[in-house]
């Protein structure tokens, strides 16, 4: 059974989403495996993971459009199985795939939504203008949606998700397939929602930078499980050092194993001719690495050092890389994971 929501000192429910042991199976495939997660009010939580990690499945269950196999969840204090209508009233959702009526205008789409959510005519009139202004679409509101660009459609969908004043907004891959400029604009709207209206937002993404820049907390998902849950900085701090990238020729197994044994090395991965290391004390490690390379006649062509990013965290946690399959210029890279050292 679900735990009762925690109540803060002001008497408000501070845990707005509670997920307890949620499991979803599609035949033999386990899309979600015993997921536990609590989301606090006015958090901006990111579900980060590769395609097929279970992000959309999780959101669909929370939004009551998919039943779970076992376990339960509540949103705004309402059970997602037994109190579907109450949950639906308190959430807004922007789906991954487009879900607008092309043959209606922007305003008509919003008006339709307002009617479905039981808003009266006066409230609808005011609210349609409010949300259109919020996403800068006031001047295009009377145009048919089929004349909109991809970014405008996305903005209209976000506006629609806000029509009925939801307390929780779900955004499933809100910037998928949009150009960088439009993505940045959508990020601004999302930030504004949280900052101005203290809205709780749960978004899924497989873009590392999106999660990093937007979210107050990130749940990294892989194969139906949450493998880590922390703030972006907290996650990066888990790497326990800086990331060092060495480009070299002629590296062999023996050399790599030698490096792996050095105490500064936390973590190691090989990508083509590039060696990616997480090291605690780069200053003392670099000379040692060069010395070892020289002894074994390996040529190091370049060295670069940077702070760890979420991609590094993901690789450390799962041994794999999140790859953006939809980006046309994404290089198909192969990283060979070298095993993890723990102290």
């Amino acid at each position: 059974m679900l735990r009762a929501p925690t109540i803060d000192s002001g008497g408000r429910v501070s845990t707005i989403i509670a997920i307890e042991g949620l499991t979803k199976k599609f035949g033999n495939l386990t899309a979600l495996n015993d997921v536990h997660l609590n989301v606090e009010a006015s958090e901006l939580l990111g579900l980060l993971g590769p395609n097929g990690a279970g992000k959309t499945t999780l959101i669909s269950i929370l939004a009551t459009i998919l039943p779970s196999t076992s376990g339960g969840a509540s949103v705004c204090g309402h059970d997602v199985h037994r109190e579907q209508h109450a949950v639906r009233k308190c959430i807004g959702i922007v789906f991954q795939d487009p879900s607008l009526d092309d043959e209606l205008t922007g305003r008509e789409n919003l008006d339709f939504h307002g009617r479905l959510y039981g808003m009266d005519a006066g409230a609808r009139l005011i609210r349609v203008e409010d949300v259109l202004r919020l996403v800068d679409l006031s001047d295009r509101g009377n145009d048919l949606v089929k004349t909109y660009s991809g970014g405008m459609r996305r903005r209209l969908e976000i506006a629609r998700g806000l029509m009925h004043h939801p307390r929780v907004l779900f955004l499933d891959e809100p910037t998928l397939g949009l150009d960088p400029q439009t993505r940045r604009k959508i990020w601004d709207y999302i930030r504004a929602l949280r900052d101005t209206f203290r809205m709780t937002i749960v978004l899924t993404t497989h873009y590392m930078d999106e999660a990093d820049q937007l979210c107050t907390r990130i749940a990294i998902m892989d194969r139906g499980e949450i493998v880590a849950l922390d703030t972006p900085d907290g996650l990066k701090a888990r790497m326990g050092g800086d990331v060092l990238e060495l480009e070299m020729t002629g590296a062999h197994q023996e050399f790599l194993e030698g490096l792996c044994r050095m105490q500064e090395v936390e973590d190691m991965a090989v990508e083509d001719e590039k060696l990616i290391l997480t090291v605690v004390n780069a200053e003392s490690f670099i000379p040692k690495a060069f010395q070892a390379a020289q002894e074994q006649e390996i040529q190091i062509r370049s060295v670069s050092m940077r702070k760890p990013n979420l991609e590094d965290v993901f690789i450390k946690l799962t041994g794999r890389e999140i790859r953006d399959e939809s980006a046309p210029d994404a290089k198909t890279r192969m990283r060979i994971y070298m095993g993890r050292k723990r102290r």
Partner: peptide, 16 residues
Amino acid sequence: WDKQFGFFKEILVAPV
């Protein structure tokens, strides 16, 4: 067609 264009989801997720 509503299903194809995704609009059907918008209807199904409404409290109706």
